[in-house]
Write a protein that binds this DNA or RNA. Structure first.
Lengths: 109, 109
DNA sequence: TTGCCATATCGTATATCGACGATAGACAAT
DNA sequence: ATTGTCTATCGTCGATATACGATATGGCAA
């Protein structure tokens, strides 16, 4: 379809430093945590509510408790979410530092 | 370990509108495109170079040409990257609109 | 202790990812 | 037309994601 004339493309061809691999892995890890609609919704939920026990999250999602628990585990592993034991429940909340890091990495893209 | 006293958690408990499902899927689709270090590096490469033919990307990455092509396909499907046929080559570049959308969605989290 | 509740983990099935080599298709040059 | 180059797609493999129900764990209350 689109047929560009030669040389209209690829404006800069000087040698480019390879983007830092560790940095790419950092960002990929954080974005991967958000790479599923259920996890996006969980994060939104936590941001709206400040914090939230697991059971409330399960109620809001059309997923089994065990599935939600797995998503929460992934979010915890990414660092985006923290979980604190609060008696018989677990209270989840956003890790503001990790969220800020994600926002900065994306904004600086 | 960390043992919060009851009621120090879950500060807001009013009814919360379910985050928009379509919106969550939108963001998940974009973040998923970046959820792999190789794709993050490709995006960085394209941002640095304005545009870039496929072959140059392959040279920068420790991956087979077919693998890079697959990652590019995923990036195209997410909308983050556009590819224009330029004679025998394909010139890839960032879709600024999609990138702006991603940045806004993340910033507004 | 016993039982109850909330959460995590296990086990399993299916689907998708991510990698590669091989091959097909498109285009330019000869 | 033939050849060579560049890119996309196919086929395949192992690894991992995602979902669920069943079960284990941990804390609280009686």
């Amino acid at each position: 379809m689109v047929k560009a004339k030669s040389q209209t493309c690829c404006t800069t061809s000087e040698k480019l430093a390879l983007p830092d691999v560790a940095w790419a892995e950092d960002l990929a890890k954080l974005t991967w945590a958000l790479a599923h609609p259920a996890r996006v919704r969980i994060v939104r939920l936590l941001l709206n509510r400040e914090s939230c026990v697991c059971g409330e999250i399960v109620e809001e999602m059309p997923l089994a408790q065990s599935t939600v628990s797995q998503h929460l585990k992934i979010l915890k592993e990414s660092g985006l979410v923290k979980g604190e034991i609060d008696g018989p429940r677990v209270c989840y909340c956003i890790n503001a530092d990790a969220m800020a890091k994600l926002k900065k990495l994306i904004a600086d893209l």
